[in-house]
Structure formats: structure tokens, C-alpha cells
Computed example of a mutant assay.
Amino acid sequence: MTTTETIIKMIFDRWNGALKNWDNLLNSLSDEALQNEIAPGKNRGVYLLGHLIAVHDDMMILLGMGEKMYPELNEPFIKSADKVVTEIPSTAELRLMWVNQCEILKQKFNGLNAEYWFEKHTAVSAEDFAKEPHRNKLNIILTRTTHLTYHTGQLALLK
């Protein structure tokens, strides 16, 4: 295994570990528990779930893998704070969206070559990428892993 392949494996091992940690925690909480705020006046668990789906949906575009699967989640879970938008999908619907999205992302990630991950993502210009080659697709996975881990820590407060 080359150094590049080792780095990619390390990042994806962490990504998959973070997904597993989130899933284990999410599956340990009832739909009713997810309606609770993580702290008084803070986001509810259901909002965190919808937010992660919406953010991971953006990866489809950032990584050049197609369109968002759930564009309707952008308004209530990225552009708006919790409880601002009153009509959101049910917790059961969000759970299904999460599982489906994770499976689709996994399928898309499998089999990609190392060079793919070091290409620029779609939110950076070619000019900026030439100056900052770390703004690549692999860095999107790294930042989303950190984001997922952060929200897993928040969700744990509902236990």
C-alpha cells in the first residue's frame, strides 16, 4: 500500500467509525427522545439528524457525484434554526433518509481511485486550487467526519 493509499484508508476508517458511532447512538434513542433539546434552548435531536442529512447531501455536489438526494432538507436544517420551520419530515422518515443516504454515499465512494480524492472539490476555483491543493475532495471527507463527530457528542446528551 502506498503512502497515499494509507492516508486515504486512515481517513475513511475514521469516517466509517464516526458513522458507526452515530448510528449506534441514534439507534439507541427512541423517536420521542429525539424530540428533546440537547440542552435547554438548544437543538433537538431530530434537528441534528436532519441537519446531518442535509450537510451530507451537499457532499454529493461538492464531490461531483450528482445532485442532492433530499434538497427539501436544506431550508429547515441548514438555512434555518431548529423550530423556525414547523413542517419537517417525521423522525421515522429522517431515519430512513439517513440510512438510504449512507448507503448511496458508500456505494459512490467504493472503488474510487486515489487520484480522485486529491482532485479539487466543486466549491473551489481552479485558480485557488492551484494555490491551495489541500482544498481537495478528501478534505471534504475529513471535515465532514469532524462535523459528524461533533454532533454525535451533542446527541449523546440525550442519553
Rank of each mutant, 00 (worst) to 15 (best):
M1V: 13
M1Y: 10
T3V: 13
T3P: 00
E5Y: 07
K9G: 11
M10F: 07
I11N: 06
R14Y: 11
R14K: 14
N16V: 02
G17R: 04
G17T: 05
K20T: 10
N21W: 02
D23Y: 05
N24A: 11
L26K: 06
N27S: 14
L29R: 01
S30G: 10
S30N: 09
D31M: 07
D31Q: 12
E32L: 12
E32Q: 15
L34T: 06
L34Y: 03
Q35C: 08
N36K: 14
E37F: 05
I38T: 15
A39W: 07
A39N: 07
A39P: 05
A39C: 09
P40Y: 04
P40A: 06
K42N: 12
L48E: 02
L49C: 06
G50W: 03
L52F: 09
A54P: 04
V55F: 01
H56R: 11
H56I: 02
D57E: 07
D57V: 00
M59L: 15
M59W: 03
M60L: 06
I61D: 02
L62F: 11
L63P: 00
G64M: 03
M65L: 15
K68Q: 10
M69N: 07
Y70P: 01
Y70E: 04
Y70K: 01
E72V: 05
L73R: 00
N74F: 06
P76H: 09
S80W: 13
S80N: 15
D82G: 03
K83Y: 04
V84N: 06
V85K: 10
T86A: 10
T86Q: 14
E87A: 14
P89T: 05
S90E: 05
T91D: 06
T91E: 09
T91R: 03
N100Y: 08
Q101T: 02
Q101M: 09
I104A: 09
I104S: 03
L105V: 01
Q107K: 12
Q107I: 07
L112F: 08
N113S: 13
A114Q: 07
E115H: 07
E115Q: 12
Y116I: 07
F118L: 15
E119D: 11
E119P: 00
E119Y: 03
K120T: 00
K120M: 06
A123P: 00
A123S: 13
A123D: 12
A123V: 05
S125I: 05
A126Y: 00
F129N: 05
A130T: 14
P133Q: 14
H134L: 08
R135F: 10
I140Y: 00
I140W: 00
I141C: 03
I141N: 01
L142C: 10
L142E: 11
R144M: 12
R144S: 08
T146R: 10
H147N: 06
H147D: 12
H147Q: 10
L148M: 15
G153I: 11
Q154M: 13
Q154P: 02
L158G: 08
L158C: 12
K159S: 12
K159H: 14
